[in-house]
Simulated assay, not measured.
Amino acid sequence: MAHAFKFAVLSLALLLAACRSDPIHYHTLIPQQPAAASSADVLLEQVSVPPQVDRPQVVIRQGNSSLAILETEWWGASLADELRNALVNQFASSSAQPRLGLRVEVQRFDSVPGQYALFDARWRLRAGNGGALLNCRSVIQTPAGASIDELVLAHQQNLKRFTELVSQAASGGASRCPALR
């Protein structure tokens, strides 16, 4: 009888250990340090993201053709909402200049732990009065460490560089697409 009781207790302990789930970690694309006000007053009109990565869970690329959805690593919102909030944060400005409308169509948002974070987007900048129109494409890649935190920081850096490019175009009269430096 004692062996049956020990077996039952051991079985229960193993069952409870198997049911244990790892905690969920939440990440944001909004940097901890507030953004410096951009030199141009940009109104973010629209952000679109590929459906493969537009989800609450962080999606990483594995090899040439595989994606992995990380069930314990989540964005604070869907990726499209995270990007929208981060860009609005970066463009926060109190300037009295006329607003410029910005539409961003993300082509690729790759996360490769231990290698890089990639932001590839087509974007359109236009004057609020229906004036000049500029269509550009920016591909920004930043080396990333192996952890998800390091990967998110690399994505934050990509967005900072992206907003600098858009601000540069907006400040220059939006006559041509700026180049990465």
Results as ranks from 00 to 15, higher is better:
S66V: 11
S66A: 13
L67Y: 13
L67W: 06
L67I: 08
L67P: 06
L67V: 07
L67M: 09
A68L: 15
A68T: 11
L70C: 04
L70N: 04
E71C: 06
E71L: 12
T72L: 05
T72K: 07
T72Y: 15
E73G: 05
W74E: 12
W75C: 02
G76W: 09
A77H: 12
S78M: 11
S78H: 11
S78G: 11
L79C: 01
A80M: 09
A80G: 10
D81Y: 12
D81L: 13
E82S: 04
L83K: 01
R84V: 00
R84A: 01
N85I: 07
N85H: 10
N85R: 13
N85P: 05
L87A: 01
V88P: 02
V88M: 03
N89A: 15
Q90S: 11
F91R: 00
F91D: 00
F91L: 01
F91S: 00
A92G: 07
A92R: 14
S93K: 00
S93D: 01
S94R: 14
S95Q: 06
A96C: 09
A96N: 14
A96K: 14
A96W: 12
Q97D: 14
Q97R: 14
Q97W: 10
P98Y: 06
R99V: 10
L100I: 09
L100M: 15
G101H: 13
G101M: 13
G101C: 09
R103P: 07
R103N: 14
R103G: 07
R103L: 11
R103V: 13
R103W: 10
E105N: 15
E105Y: 12
V106S: 01
V106E: 00
V106M: 02
Q107P: 06
Q107F: 05
R108E: 13
R108L: 07
R108F: 06
R108S: 09
F109Y: 15
D110Y: 10
D110P: 08
S111F: 06
S111I: 05
S111L: 09
V112P: 09
V112I: 14
V112F: 13
V112L: 14
P113A: 04
P113S: 03
G114C: 11
G114M: 09
G114T: 09
Y116T: 09
A117H: 01
L118M: 04
L118N: 05
L118C: 02
L118S: 04
F119D: 03
F119Q: 01
F119I: 04
F119S: 02
D120R: 01
A121G: 07
A121V: 08
A121Y: 07
R122E: 13
R122M: 08
W123L: 01
R124L: 11
R124M: 08
L125S: 00
L125W: 00
R126A: 13
A127S: 15
G128R: 12
G128K: 07
G128C: 08
N129D: 15
N129Y: 09
N129E: 10
G130N: 02
